[in-house]
Design a protein around this nucleic acid. Sequence first.
DNA 1: GAAGATTGAATTTTCAATCTTC
DNA 2: GAAGATTGAAAATTCAATCTTC
Lengths: 154, 154
Amino acid sequence: MGRMSPRPAPEHLRAWRALLVAHRRLVDRLAQELEEARQLPLTWYDVLVHLAEEPQRRLRMSDLAGRVLLSQSGLTRLVDRMADAGLVTRERCPTDRRGTFVVPTPRGLSTLEAAAPGHLAGVATHFAEHLDEREAALLGDVLERIAGALDAPA
Amino acid sequence: MGRMSPRPAPEHLRAWRALLVAHRRLVDRLAQELEEARQLPLTWYDVLVHLAEEPQRRLRMSDLAGRVLLSQSGLTRLVDRMADAGLVTRERCPTDRRGTFVVPTPRGLSTLEAAAPGHLAGVATHFAEHLDEREAALLGDVLERIAGALDAPA
DNA sequence: GAAGATTGAATTTTCAATCTTC
DNA sequence: GAAGATTGAAAATTCAATCTTC
């Protein structure tokens, strides 16, 4: 007998498509608002957030690439642009000279601080206001489960 | 008194971040599997799906751009490539000669048919299997609500 | 003059190759 | 020889300008 490949149920397919559309519209809108308010690309904001969250205020290039969901070489170029703009600098890793740390400059940190309230307000308005606490918890659980299962390489 | 801008609750922020990570990992993985199995970019697959779903098997350039979440000019280029590959053709709109229809070729439709089971199996494995019916329904509702609210232009 | 679509130029991202250090 | 990162060349996407038709 032919083994059918698993097919998502209609309800699951609807959720999947809604995920694609909602994600795209949210990211587009938030990026547009951040650009208009602060002339700051969302990817730059994202880099600064991840750096600022580190206790040492620094991340290796490869770790940062994973955080911002970009390829190695894509991140090299992104950091180039942000360094040109004076928002981050590179520091050699003392214990392993192959490694490079990305470190936010004071100006990078203040740029983040200035942009964060507006951006978070956007997340609240366009995303959070549509979910109650219970729904947010469920969404977080489900999506973390999905992402976790995809963590291991193909 | 200074009015605070709305800040997402921690639970909401967690859900938002999970959405970003899950989306990226899902799309990356599904694109990779489709490329390996069928040498077909996920964006091409997406175009073919939306065309095949239309009763008339055709969409105007601008409508298709909305469906696949691409800019007008981005879609022009994408359709160029797919036409070069023989998967779609352009047809002039008879009632409005400014308009252009994109129509899948027989080869485009058979490419879609060949690719769909494997891709849907991927959606089942990487996405649907992690949600029960009730969770899928909630996810769909919430995300459609969010996307709907962003429908109107900025 | 506006709508639908395309084009040229510029930007962003990736792949493969390379270079340095382990 | 592998890991961390960068570079050149190529691919994909966007913005502004353009062209055609309404």
